[in-house]
Amino acid sequence: MSKVVDREAVRQAIEKLPLFSSSALQLLQVIADPDHELEDVVKIVKFDSALTMRVLKAVNSPVYGLVKEVTSIDRALSYLGERMVISIAVQENTGQLFSKPLEGYQSRQGDLWRHDLFSAIASREVARYAKGDFDLDLAFTGGLLHDIGKSIFASFWKEASQDALGQIEQGIVSDYLMAEQDLAGLDHTEVGYEMARHWQLPESLQAVILHHHHPAEAIECMQPLVYAVHVGDIVSMMAGCDTGSDSLKYHLDPGYEEFFNLSPTNLAEIVLNAEEEFSKAETSLKS
C-alpha cells in the first residue's frame, strides 16, 4: 500500500505553527508539577492582561449564576479552578486549530474542541476513581490536548481516509489508528507528539498525546495519567462528543483496571458528571 502523506510536508506545517505564549507555556509547566499551588497559577495569569480579561469574562458568564461580579483573578481562579484557566489559555494559543472542520474525519466545525473539552472533563472525572494519588487537573490538561494532532493531520489524511473504514470492516487493520498508519504512513498521535515537541510542552503531556490509544506503551511513571486520558477519550466518544468517522473505532485497553476502580455505576456517574460540567464549560468559554 502506498504511503500517500508526505512526512516532510507535515513537518513543515508543524514548523509554521506559532509558539505558545510564555504565560501559557509556564501555566502548562506549572500544572505538570505535582507540587504546584493555586497561587503559582494566579501569579502567571496576573501578568498576562489578555488572559486575565478572558478568565474574568468566563467566571462572570450567566451560566455560573454569580450574584456579585467577580473582579479579582484570585477569586475567579478559586471559583473556576485551574482547569478552566488552562482551557482559556490553550484556546487563546491554538487559534483556529481546534475550531476548523477535520476534513479527513468528516467532522463539523468546532467538533475537535468539543471532543477535547469533553475528554478533558471526563479524564478528570476518571482520575477521581484512581487507586492512588492523582493530579486531577493534569488529567484534564492531558485530555484537552490529546487529539491536537488531528488539527494538522486531518487535511493530509483527507484522500487516504476514504478506505479507512472499509479496511477496519474487512479486518485488514484492527482499528482506526492502524488504518492511519497503513494508509498514510503516520497517524494523528505521532503528528500531535511532534506538535507538542515544537511547542515544548511538558513531557507528561507529550506522553499523553503520543500514547493515548496505547497507554501500556508509555513509560511506567506516566501510565496512570495516560490511562486516565485513554478512558476519558472513550467516554467522550460514547457520549457522542466525537470527531467524526473515527468515533468508537479504537480499542479499550483493560490495563486501566490497575490504576482505577471503575464499576458500571462509577462509569455512569462519570458520564453524568462530565456531561453536566461540559455544558457549563462550553457555554462559559464561548462568552
Binding site: M237, L252, P264
Partner: peptide, 16 residues
C-alpha cells in the same frame, strides 16, 4: 447503543 472496540462489561453502556 454503540460501543468502543473490545469493550468489557463496565463499558457496555450501549447494550444496557
Amino acid at each position: 447503543g454503540a460501543s468502543i472496540m473490545d469493550h468489557n462489561n463496565t463499558f457496555n453502556i450501549g447494550k444496557r
